[in-house]
Design a protein around this nucleic acid. Structure first.
Length: 469
RNA sequence: GGUGUCGUAGCCAAGUGGUAAGGCAGAGCUCUGCAAAAGCUCCAUCGCCGGUUCAAAUCCGGCCGACACCUCCA
């Protein structure tokens, strides 16, 4: 089955046909780096990482660009509050972002360009826009003139006339049209700025993505991604700039947008104090659990972040790793190269190609587990097992050695005295061999009251793990 | 006011015309000294009302409800 994607611009699921099969291009709006990434930022990163992986299943070479926005008024504000240069803030949080995204099992994009490294390209595009009559200078600002581009609104499907009625628009007096937006704004001495034909200043919000996508992917590229909130005005404006400057074309061929993360049914916002930071969540859950949760509903649907969701994620991942562990113990998979060469099953690939149908993917993974469990022929079992692991890995899960996975769980939260636990396990073993089940149960209970649960394995050993609450 | 998205079991979530995938939780049984794991079994008629059709969760209309964007935001 060929890859199909839902295109925001046409509002349809379309078959994906790249401009160039030899180099598929994708640009995704990355973070503005002035604080920690929250779980909503993470969703976008995970969704497009998944798409990156799916593209790799279909094509040899993918160029995936995800930018860092490192010049922005929020950054300026943070920098002046802390009395440090903006680069100190942006470098710090860009680093954290990269680490957090890695923890979630995301592959690194091909390129991660920064806005401040593309000022000349930005100035060039703005100059082109002015030359072609799509932009004008006013009081040190340069603005894009929306009426000069009749197709404006084609991406977000908004009719300008209908918008104005109830919208809370504060119009700057120097705008020719209320919808005009800033391409370049002046900086006084207290603000970061760059020399330009219009004086010292800094870029507006949307122009950077036009410049960076053009620099690294060309004037036309295949996929443009981001969160749903970016459709308007960010992507609409970006598209206008892209099509009105340089040569003409489609700009981006497929616009793909992921849905929002909600928290207990309502929007995540600072004022409600319900913003979950990836950084904090990683203290409590393995990155793969968070990844599972983020992938558990279709990427275009809203995702409600709840305790139920994370505990379900933990259960499912444990089940996956339990299967992996059994396979590992039976076949010593790590010793063989079979794992590295293994491919996901065709059914999984088809589900992914169908606009990233993750529910189908998980259904197949669970079915594979059941088949593995029941399979008695070792050769068939091994082959199923290898397919299962390869299939889970293609979506960015099962990157840990299974023993490491369960070991890691032990290490989280709650302070543990391993020696104390091991001693009690020994004592219980002795008690059990003497049929002193009363004492054996006492030990189980005692550990249980300390959040430790014991599991007797078929081979006679006893393992322990921590349970919450 | 404009523009969209959505409403499927306790929870998560597919399915978009032919009589409801999967998972989590739960219940029962098997196995196990106990517990866990594993296996088997059970657990919905798809927000409401009306229409189209031989046939609708799936198409159309109306209503109710939730959410988002139109302002910085993934």
């Amino acid at each position: 089955m060929a890859l199909t994607l839902y295109n925001t611009e046409t509002r349809k699921k379309e078959q994906f046909v790249p401009f160039n099969r030899e180099n598929v291009t994708m640009y995704v709006c990355g973070p503005t780096v002035y604080s920690y990434a929250h779980i909503g930022n993470a969703r976008a990163a995970v969704v497009f990482d998944l798409l990156f992986r799916v593209l790799q299943l279909n094509y040899k070479k993918i160029t995936y660009v995800r930018n860092f926005t490192d010049i922005d008024d929020k950054i300026n504000k943070a920098a002046s509050e802390q009395n440090v240069p903006i680069s100190e803030i942006t470098r710090h949080f860009a680093n954290i972002y990269q680490k957090d995204m890695l923890s979630l099992g995301n592959l690194a994009p091909t390129l991660e360009p920064k806005v401040t490294e593309h000022i000349p390209q930005i100035i060039k595009i703005i100059s082109e826009l002015i030359e072609k009559g799509h932009a004008y200078e006013a009081e040190g600002h340069v603005l894009f003139n929306v009426p000069s581009y009749p197709e404006y609104g084609s991406l977000s499907h908004r009719d300008r006339d209908d918008q104005i009625a109830g919208a809370r628009v504060e119009t700057a007096p120097f705008k020719k049209d209320a919808a005009d937006f800033v391409l370049w704004k002046p900086s006084d001495d207290s603000l970061p700025g760059w020399a330009s034909p219009w004086g010292r200043g800094r870029p507006g919000w949307h122009i950077e993505c036009t410049a960076m996508s053009r620099e690294h992917l060309g004037e036309n590229f295949d996929i443009h991604g981001g969160g749903q909130d970016l459709i308007f005005p960010h992507h609409e404006n970006e598209l206008a700039q892209g099509k009105c400057s340089g040569n003409h074309g489609k700009y981006a061929k497929y616009w793909v947008h992921n849905g929002f993360v909600k928290v207990n049914g309502s929007k995540m916002s600072k004022s409600l104090g319900n913003v979950f930071l990836v950084h904090d969540l990683l203290e409590k859950y393995p990155g793969e659990v968070l990844r599972y949760c983020l992938l558990s509903s279709h990427y275009r649907q809203p995702l409600d972040w709840t305790d139920d969701l994370t505990s379900q994620g933990q259960e499912v991942l444990d089940k996956f790793y339990r299967t992996y562990l059994e396979l590992q113990q039976e076949f010593d998979l790590a010793r063989h190269s079979s794992l590295d060469e293994a491919q996901p099953t065709q059914e999984i690939v088809d589900a992914l190609n169908d606009d990233l149908n993750m529910s189908k993917v998980f259904a197949v993974l669970h079915r594979l587990i059941a088949e593995i469990r029941k399979q008695e022929d070792p050769e068939i079992k091994k082959s199923l097992g290898v397919s299962f692991i390869a299939s889970a890995r293609i979506i960015g899960l099962m990157n840990f050695d299974p023993e490491q996975w369960f070991q890691k769980e032990k290490a989280t939260s709650i302070k543990i005295d391993e020696l104390y636990i091991e001693n009690l396990i020994q004592e219980r073993k002795t008690a059990r061999s003497e049929k002193n089940f009363k004492r054996a149960d006492e030990i189980r209970d005692e550990l249980k009251s300390n959040h430790i649960v014991l599991e007797d394995k078929p081979d006679g050993t006893t393992e322990w793990k921590i349970f919450e609450q």
